[in-house]
Design a protein around this nucleic acid. Structure first.
Lengths: 477, 477
DNA sequence: GGGTATTTGTCCGTATGTATG
DNA sequence: TCATACATACGGACAAATACC
C-alpha cells in the first residue's frame, strides 16, 4: 500500500486532518474498497515523514466515523461503506490567522564604552523574530526535504524573482531574475565580480569610501584608484583622467559622507561609462532603504544605460547582519560571462536561508519591517540631531537626510582630538580618516567624526549626545 | 548472555536510550566483541523488566548506526566496528534529548534517466530533519537575539572548537580553534586561500581531480599544473620537477580515482613540502568520513609537519549540501597572514546556521548521523558491487573500499562508448575524462566510468546495475 | 527423521506523557 | 484550557528459523 498524500505544513489545516480527509475521500470515491487493509500507522508515518501519532489521529477519526475498523495486531481495514451518508458541509471554511508579534527590545552591552556610536550598526530590537522563526519552521517541514539538497548556484529562482520584484518596486531597477546573483555578503559578490570582469582592471573608488570593498578589490589583485569627490560625488573629469575602467560608487547615499549624488552627476557618470567599451559602474545601494526626507532617489541602474551598471544590494543592513544574504544585478551582457567564469561556484547561501528570506519578502514581511525600521531609525536620527543642537556653532553636520549615521565636522579640532575628548567622556566616535584610501585627507575630512546611531537605544543616544556636548564644548570655548 | 544494565526510570534519559548507550559502550570498549550474539529483545526485556518495544527501540538505534546487525529469526549480532566514529569531548558529557528516527527513503526524480549514477550525490533519506528543526528552533529563541547580529569573521568560536574536537577525535588533526576558518563552501575557502597565499603561486594538482578546485584556482589567477599520479597518488619526483610550490591533494580518498595514499607516499610529500620555504600541501579530506573496510587512514596533517599542511573539510557531504558550511585548518604561521590578508572578510555563513551546526556537533547528533550514514552507504555500496558481479570479467573495479562511488574500467571499450551503451539503457554513468586537467588521459582513464550511488535507493541501484549488465555484456561478447 | 513447540525478528494497534502555541 | 504533534512505552500476532522429541 502506498498512499501518496500531499501534505502542507502550516496551511491552516492540521496534518492529521489532511490525512483523514484524503483517506475519507478515497474510501468514498471507491479508490479504497471495502476490506482493503490500510498502511499501518508506522508505515504511513514514515512515508509521509510525520509522527506516528499524527497518522494515528487520522485513523482514530476515521475509526470513530466508521470508515475503517481496527483489528489489533493486524491493521486497519476499510469498512463496508454502503450506508455512509454523504454529509457535505456547506462550505465551512475556517482558520486563517496570521500570527504576528514581537515588539522593540533593548540591545546589549557596549563593551568598555558608555555609548558607542558605531557606524553600520543595526537595531535588532524591532526585528520580527517570531515571524522569522515561524517561516523557518515552515520551510523546514518534511515536505521540503529538497531544501537540504544543493540548489541553484546563482541563488534560488524564487528568491531572485522576489528580489527583482522588490527592486523594481522600491528602486526602479529593471531586470530579470536571471540577472540577479545571490551570495553570502557583498564582499563575496565583489570577489565574484573580480572573477567575472577579470583582474586586469582598474577600479575607481570614492575616497572616503566603504573600506571593505576596497580591501576586497585589493585582495583580489585588482588595481584600485581613489578619485576625488566634490559635494556632488565622484568627479567625472577626474574619473576620466584616472584611466580606470570601472567605477565603484554609492550614489543614493555615499558611505561614509552621506552625499546624495544629484541626477546631473549621475548622468555624467553614465556617460563616462558609455564612452568606452568595457566600462562599468558598480552601484552599491547600501542602506538606500533608509531615507527620511525628500523624494526617493532613483537608482543609477534605473536611469537608462542599465547595461553599464552592476547594481549591488544587501539584506545585512535591512534585515539582519547574521543573515548574510546580498545580491547583485548584472547587465544582460555580463550574465553570460558570469555563467562562464563564475557560474560553477555553488551558491554560498544555504538554500534554507534563501527560502526563509524569500517567504519573508513575498509575504510582505520585509516591507512591513522596513516601514517599521524607517520609523525607528528616523526617531533616533531626529533625537540625535536634536540632542546635539548645542554643538551647532562649532560643528557642521552632514549626511542628515538619510542613512544610519551622521557626520560632524569641527571648525578647527582634528578627529584625533575629537575622538580623545569623546573617549575621555566614555563615548566612542569614529574618525573619518580610516575610510580614506590613498593619501589621507588634509582638509575637512581630517576634522570629521562619524556617529552611527542605529544600534543605540534612545536613552543611549540622549546620554551620548549629552556627554559629547559636554566634552566638546568645554574645549571649544 | 546476561546484560546487567542499570536502568533509572524517570531520570531524564529514556529507558531505551540508556540501554542503547550501555550496549554501545560495551561494543566500543570491547566488552562485547564482534559476532557475539546479543540477548533477544524478549529476554532482555524480561531481565530488565521493561517492555519489549523498549529493548526493540534500543536495538533499532544500534542497528541504524551500524553497531549491530539483525538476522531474522536468529538474533542480533555485534558488527565489525573498526571505524565507528567516537568523538569524545574532553570531559563534561551532558546529552539531553536524542530524538532520532527515520530510515532510508527513496529520493525524487532522476530527470530523463531511469537511473542516474551521479557522483558526489548524497542520501538525505536518513537526515535527522526533526533534530535539525528542533535545534534550529532552540537557536532562534528570544534569548538568543544576538544570533542575528554579525559574528566572528573566522566563524563562531564555539563552532570552531567543536570542529577542532571532531577533527582531533576522528582524523587525528591537531590544531587549536584559532587555526580553524569557517566558510560557505570549500570553493569559497579556496578563494580565501588564494588571497592568503598570494596569486603568484603555482599549484600542483592530481589529474583526474576535483574539477571545482581547479576552476577556483584558475579563476583566481593562480597557475595550476597537473602532476602525474601512479597507483599511490601524486608522484613526488614529478611534483619536484613541476616547480610548483603548493600541492593540492586528497590523500585519504582521492576524487575521483579513490586511490588511498599509502603512508610512505605521504611522507614523501611532506618532505617535499619541507624542503623549501613557502611550500604548502592542501589536504582536501573530502568524504574521509566514509570508509567501509580497513583501518582509518590518518590525515596528512596529523603526520607531523602540520605547519606545512592546510587541511580542508566540509559538511556539505556529511550533513547536507544546502548547509554549505566548510572549514579549513591553517598552519600556525599562516594564521597571522590570514588575519592580515583575509581577516576583514565577514564570515560568509549565517551565524544562526553556525549555531545550529555547532549544537548538532556537540550534542552528538553528528556522530550518530555519520554512523548511520556509514551503515546506509555501506549497504548501498555492497549492493552495487554484488549487483555488478556479472561484469567482473570485462571490467576492473576500483575505489571500492571507501567513498560514495566506484570506478569501472573496461578492458577495451572507451568511456564514450560505455556511456552511450548505458544511456541507451536509460542509465547515466559518468566518464572519467571530464575530471582530467591538462591533456586528457590515453590509457585506462579513457576506458573508465564512474558510478556514484549515494543518492540512489536500493531499488534504483539494483535496477541500474541490471540495466548496465545487460547493456555492457551484450556488446562485450 | 519428520513433526512440533519454542524462540526470534518483525510488524502491529494501543496508551500515556510532554512540548508548544 | 485545548488542539496539535511528537516521544516513549506496552504487549499481541505472525512467519521463519531452530531446537526438541
Amino acid at each position: 500500500m502506498d498512499l501518496m498524500i500531499p501534505l502542507k505544513q502550516g496551511a491552516g489545516t492540521p496534518l492529521y486532518e489532511q490525512i483523514y480527509e484524503y483517506i475519507k475521500q478515497e474510501i468514498r470515491t471507491g479508490g479504497l474498497r471495502a476490506a482493503v487493509r490500510l498502511p499501518s500507522t508506522r508505515q504511513l508515518a514514515e512515508n509521509l515523514k510525520v509522527s506516528r501519532s499524527t497518522t494515528q489521529l487520522a485513523y482514530d477519526q476515521l475509526l470513530a466515523e466508521g470508515y475503517i475498523e481496527s483489528r489489533p495486531c493486524r491493521g486497519y481495514f476499510v469498512c463496508e461503506a454502503e450506508n455512509l451518508l454523504e454529509i457535505s458541509p456547506a462550505q465551512g471554511e475556517k482558520r486563517e490567522e496570521e500570527g504576528e508579534a514581537a515588539s522593540p527590545k533593548p540591545g546589549g552591552e557596549n563593551g568598555p564604552w558608555a555609548v558607542d556610536f558605531l557606524p553600520r550598526g543595526i537595531d535588532l530590537g524591532s526585528f520580527p523574530y517570531g515571524v522569522w522563526r515561524k517561516i523557518s519552521r515552515n520551510v523546514m517541514v518534511d515536505g521540503n526535504r529538497e531544501m537540504f539538497l544543493s540548489g541553484d548556484s546563482q541563488g534560488e529562482r524564487s528568491l531572485r524573482e522576489a528580489i527583482r520584484d522588490y527592486l523594481h518596486a522600491a528602486r526602479g531597477v529593471s531586470c530579470q531574475a536571471d540577472q540577479v546573483v545571490v551570495g553570502a555578503g557583498s564582499e563575496y559578490l565583489l570577489m565574484l565580480l573580480a572573477n567575472v570582469l577579470g583582474r586586469d582592471r582598474t577600479v575607481a573608488m570614492e575616497s572616503p569610501t566603504y573600506k571593505q570593498a576596497y580591501r576586497v578589490f585589493d585582495g583580489q589583485g585588482v588595481r584600485v584608484l581613489p578619485v576625488e569627490m566634490d559635494g556632488r560625488g565622484m568627479r567625472p573629469d577626474r574619473l576620466e583622467e584616472s584611466g580606470a575602467d570601472i567605477a565603484y560608487v554609492m550614489p543614493s547615499h555615499q558611505f561614509p559622507t552621506g552625499i546624495v549624488m544629484p541626477v546631473g552627476r549621475r548622468q555624467e557618470l553614465l556617460q563616462w561609462a558609455g564612452r568606452k567599451k568595457g566600462r562599468f559602474l558598480i552601484e552599491d545601494d547600501y542602506d538606500s532603504e533608509f531615507r527620511y526626507r525628500g523624494k526617493p532617489v532613483p537608482s543609477l541602474q534605473s536611469m537608462g544605460m542599465a547595461d553599464r551598471v552592476i547594481y549591488l544590494g544587501t539584506f545585512s543592513q535591512s534585515v539582519a547582519p547574521a543573515i548574510r544574504i546580498s545580491y547583485m544585478v548584472l547587465p544582460r551582457k555580463l550574465v553570460a560571462l558570469y555563467r562562464r567564469r563564475a557560474g560553477f561556484y555553488a551558491s554560498t547561501v544555504s538554500r534554507i536561508d534563501q527560502a526563509i528570506l524569500c517567504e519573508f519578502l513575498t509575504e510582505g514581511h520585509f516591507e512591513r519591517h522596513l516601514n517599521r525600521m524607517r520609523a525607528v531609525y528616523r526617531a533616533k536620527h531626529d533625537l540625535l540631531l536634536a540632542s546635539l543642537k548645542a554643538l551647532d556653532g562649532d560643528f557642521q553636520m552632514s549626511g542628515e537626510n538619510a542613512g544610519l549615521h551622521i557626520l560632524l565636522t569641527h571648525r578647527s579640532l582634528g578627529e584625533r582630538r575629537l575622538s580623545e575628548l569623546a573617549a575621555a567622556a566614555g563615548v566612542k566616535v569614529y574618525g573619518l580618516s580610516s575610510y580614506f584610501i590613498g593619501e589621507p585627507e588634509k582638509g575637512e575630512g581630517s576634522r570629521t567624526v562619524i556617529l552611527g546611531y542605529a544600534s543605540l537605544t534612545e536613552e543611549e543616544i540622549r546620554e551620548g549626545a549629552e556627554r559629547l556636548t559636554r566634552a566638546w564644548t568645554a574645549v571649544s570655548v
